Simulated scan of single mutants.
Amino acid sequence: MKLNKKAVVMKQTDNIQTQPITVKGLRIISRRILPLYERIANDRLYAKRLINAMRTFDLDRTTRVIQQELPGAGASIGAGFSASYSLRVTKKTKVYLDTGIFSPGQLLSIQSEDIRRVSLIMLQLLRKLANDGIFAARFIRLVRTRKQAELLRLVNNVNSKLIVSATISEYGPLFVVCLSNGKRYNLSFEQS
């Protein structure tokens, strides 16, 4: 019997296990996700394209816009967007991180300028995670021990008090950002 190579590859993929994110994994993935948030924060037209794709609830279109900066990334949409990225650690294990910006119940009123401001906050946090191993280790420790108040203080040292709350679920932290115009957005960091 002749084996189909595609079937073998799929079988190998099925055996890959996701493991909890490590400091090294978080730093690498944060570094790789940076271009997406840099582009959103610095490119008004790109931010508008992303918003327009989200508003049409067209996942393929949203994914294509995100993949312009993050080839191979996954995407999801709802009251905002998220981009997911995985990193193979060994032949059988990988770490996975999903970052996103959401405004619950407000998809149609999301403005590109707001997304750009929130992306700048996400960008500052991702840069710190990517470039500072001690900060990344503390971030992971606070998430794992679910110390929300300490995590909020830690991220506000990076983001000048624009993050007004932090909650931690079994999937990871969720931060609420309050912009100067009073609008609130959620920054999510999910790991599975």
Rank of each mutant, 00 (worst) to 15 (best):
E38P: 00
L26Y: 03
N42L: 13
S86P: 05
R44H: 14
A136L: 05
T99Y: 00
P35A: 13
S103E: 11
S76W: 06
L125Y: 05
T18S: 11
T56C: 08
D14C: 11
R39I: 08
L34Q: 12
R116E: 15
T56M: 13
I121Q: 02
S82R: 00
I121E: 09
Q111L: 12
S119E: 10
T99M: 04
D114C: 08
P71I: 11
I140G: 02
Y96E: 08
L129R: 01
A130L: 10
V118K: 02
Q111I: 07
R44N: 13
L142G: 02
R117L: 12
L45G: 14
E38G: 02
D98C: 13
Q67C: 01
L126P: 04
V118E: 06
T13C: 11
R144G: 12
V143I: 14
R146N: 09
I115R: 00
D132P: 04
N52H: 14
I51A: 03
L34I: 14
Y37L: 08
Y46R: 02
E69G: 04
S82G: 01
G78E: 05
V65R: 03
R39P: 02
D58S: 15
F57G: 07
I21G: 03
D60H: 05
L45T: 14
A79G: 00
N52S: 15
F81R: 09
A137F: 08
I77S: 07
G133T: 03
G80M: 08
Y85V: 09
D14H: 10
P104L: 09
L26E: 03
L129N: 02
I110A: 05
P104F: 10
S112M: 10
T13K: 15
S84C: 10
A137H: 06
A47I: 05
R146C: 06
E113P: 10
G78K: 02
E69D: 09
K91S: 14
Q12N: 11
A83T: 13
R61L: 12
T145K: 15
Y96A: 05
K92V: 13
L126T: 06
A79H: 07
D98T: 11
G105Q: 06
E38W: 06
L36M: 04
S76F: 06
K11S: 10
R61E: 13
I40V: 13
V143H: 00
K24Y: 09
I115W: 00
I16F: 10
L125R: 00
S86M: 08
